[in-house]
Amino acid sequence: MARTKNCRSASGSGNIRKRPNGTWEGRYTAGTDERTGKSIRRSVYGKTQKEVRERLRQITNDIDTGSYVAPCSMKYSEWIDIWLSEYLTGRSPLTISQYKSYAHNHIVPVLGNHRLDELSLAQIQKFINSLAQESLSAKTVKNIYGIMHRCLQQAVTLGYLRHNPSEHCSLPRSLDPGITPLETPEIMLLIRRLQELNHPDANLILVTLFTGMRQSEVIGLSWPDVDFRKGIIFVRRQLVKLPEKGQGYIFSSPKSRKSRIIKPAPTVMRILDRQREQQKHWAQTAGSAWDNPENLVFTNEVGRHLAHVTVYKRFKDIVRELGFPECRFHDLRHTFATVSLENGDSIKTVQANLGHATASFTMAKYAHVSEAMRMESSVQMDRFIHNVSDL
């Protein structure tokens, strides 16, 4: 059959024709269907003949070199759901829940209806920029981007995509907010006020302040993990609230995924003993209503676990009253680390107590204290030099 006016060969790759609507179509053969034995014919489209010819040339080159990836009409929302359900093996329930929350609350509403193979760097960068404008922290934006990047990289691995369109996104710069540990006079004020109020969370706050445990770790602490005879605390798990609505709380391993042993000051063990006696009194008063199946150390008056938000709000109320409203519950942990270093504990010891993965992270986090320690070391060395010489 004679070739029509608008059809021409594209370097042996197939045919190009002009469509009635003025755009151009290039057709090519992408192998053979194994089930039917027929050739697989596909099309690419463009506004100009030149654009289509270049795309066809690239496609045929990919077919010849074995790097061709067939178009994928799956929507991005479909692929995210598949990835979340099938490719997060080994992740903790908390991590999976966080991924689902970020995906369904941020990614899918904006990009979910796009075809997986049509996502572009420009679209993803625009999405990332919009997140930054929503007053989300740089850390949150990076977390959302990380989910997108891993999800799309899996699509590349499976052959759904030729390359990861999120590969070269520019992310907002994280600003280290620094830490604001309580000073000694503030610590004294806090302790005194907790005692005056007979505060319901007094023991919990004091144990946190003098062990550096995370809020989720101290709320999830159980009595079998408190060894009064040896004077040690085993940090084996934490009680965390899942981010998706209605899922409640779960126990998981500590943030570092490793358990640790804390040898606190004897005063801390006495505080825990007071808590044990208080809880026995509550259990007797509650009778059959007492409900503490996990044998938790810190509960309400009928044995139920404490809610993170309740503990946080009650803590914020008392620090506002004392005149340091910017103090967060997590600053109790920073205070413990700072006081420990200032009183001569080594970086390695503080790292182990806090459960940090590396000593270098601990040193970087508390660099201001490390600098003070270096200055003190310098003064001590100078004193030694003067004691042994007349230099």
Rank of each mutant, 00 (worst) to 15 (best):
G146V: 00
G178S: 12
I179C: 05
I144C: 01
R162S: 07
K126V: 09
K126W: 05
R150E: 06
L189D: 08
A132N: 15
S170K: 13
N164W: 11
A132R: 10
S135K: 15
L182K: 09
P185A: 00
G178H: 13
P177Y: 04
K126E: 12
S170I: 13
P172S: 08
V156P: 05
L182T: 07
K139V: 14
V141S: 04
T140L: 06
L152G: 10
T140Q: 15
L182V: 05
L182D: 12
L182R: 03
K126F: 04
G178A: 14
Y160G: 11
A155S: 10
N129Q: 12
E183Q: 13
S174V: 04
V156T: 04
P185G: 02
E186T: 07
I144M: 01
T184S: 07
H168N: 11
L175D: 10
I179W: 02
I187N: 07
E186W: 11
K142Y: 10
T140E: 15
L175A: 11
I144N: 00
Q154D: 04
H163I: 03
V141Q: 04
I179P: 12
A138H: 05
N143H: 15
L152I: 04
F127V: 02
M188Q: 14
D176W: 09
R150W: 02
G146Y: 00
G159Y: 13
T184R: 08
S174A: 10
L152V: 08
S130K: 09
V141D: 01
I128M: 13
I179N: 08
L136Y: 15
T180W: 09
V156R: 14
S130P: 14
P181Q: 01
D176S: 12
L161S: 08
N143A: 05
M188G: 04
M148W: 01
S174Y: 12
Q153K: 08
